[in-house]
Nucleic acid binder design. Sequence first.
DNA 1: TTTGAAAGTGTATTTAGCACACGAAGTATC
DNA 2: GATACTTCGTGTGCTAAATACACTTTCAAA
Lengths: 237, 237
Amino acid sequence: MSKKNSEPTPKNTLGMDVSVDCVVFGFDNDTLKVLLIEQKQPDTVHLKTQNAVPGDLVLDNESLDEAAKRILQELTSLKGIYLKQFHAFGDPNRVRGLKDQQWLRTFRVNPERRVLTIGYYSLVKLSEFKPKAASFAGKTYWVDVYNIPSLAFDHNEIVHKALLMLRHELMADHIGFELLPEKFTLSQLQKLYEIILDKKLDKRNFRKNILRTETVTALEEKQQGVLHKPAQLFSKK
Amino acid sequence: MSKKNSEPTPKNTLGMDVSVDCVVFGFDNDTLKVLLIEQKQPDTVHLKTQNAVPGDLVLDNESLDEAAKRILQELTSLKGIYLKQFHAFGDPNRVRGLKDQQWLRTFRVNPERRVLTIGYYSLVKLSEFKPKAASFAGKTYWVDVYNIPSLAFDHNEIVHKALLMLRHELMADHIGFELLPEKFTLSQLQKLYEIILDKKLDKRNFRKNILRTETVTALEEKQQGVLHKPAQLFSKK
DNA sequence: TTTGAAAGTGTATTTAGCACACGAAGTATC
DNA sequence: GATACTTCGTGTGCTAAATACACTTTCAAA
């Protein structure tokens, strides 16, 4: 089984396309949403379009983080978005749907090439989000993370894993405010936590906890235009 | 910037080689060790050999997990080893050392091809470990994780990140016993924790904690052949 | 001025974290 | 068989964090 050192035997593989897929989370005060794109389809083949998570091939001189950043910036005009690599999806059969294969034949120079994808998730402030046409995407839209339609490739699995990682990191690093506007109330933040973690939290204990972590800081300002006692506004520290 | 749907424009990239690198941890009752290999070198070029973490290209029909498992099984005879994907390393310049490039020219059919690697770490029971000749490796040996020499490619970074992930998961999931023999004492387990986390722990509190998590179970047996009060043996539950 | 609706706050109880020291159970030696 | 040596195994009191729980305040609208 072992080879002698004196006989170098170069190893051959076909090579893979590597892509980055971004699970973009947004929050609209009621539901946690994920950004989907309608996959581009050639006019000739008339298939029902599929939905997918935005993603693209990693370019030849690009790092993975750079590719993820580029994908996000092609979809939005936002800068400084929270981005985190969370898993590599490399099953050789992850592309097995008929439509998926047809799509690859249209949009990839090497449609037979195996595709490995690196999953990132990102948190954007829905309030500041303005969709932009991206080279790799058709229309974009937001769907409730707890009610996601059937997606292209293995994207349902990717979204599911992203959510698990998000939950985990929300608890560990308190990154929730990345999904809220610059100024937010603690009630908004609590609701966000409740929706992401999918359980109710006690108001007083939640506030104690958040304030203890010192990830947010109270502003002088108060909420305006609400028909009840206005809440104090906070921002990321 | 956006393209009309009616003009499919296939995207071209050169493709990448994808490899899996395994950071194999072992524990010898005193130090946490990492398994290194001596990189194979052709006799012709007489370079000082470099050390590396074991890894190999992912084969054409292999998933990432399968590749990691194969790499481990080529190095050891062990089955059922704990294995976990922890990060993808994809910087386009991660291979920039002169020796690294020479090595690629010898052992890769496409030495210029960009290489992406998926990092896995694994926990093995040193007591059961028997090194085996592997197709991709020269000699193997263990080094103290806190005293690692300069390695090929970006492997120092890979090991470092693996250690951080291991620490994290040790706390969260109590997987420590994967590094110990089937039967172990709580003192052994505590020492393992202390070395991985790099801090002292209180004996009584440690025991309370471990027993509360119910990840281990007490055996009838006691330690034998020690010149002091024999400790109770435990095993994974 | 009354109503509605969410904001904001305190306390008591339970649970987990932590610091700390000594008798018990074996082996080896004389 | 007494002694010395070494690690094992345990209990308690204190402090900090987690949890459960309900009422008053502040504003806008009618």
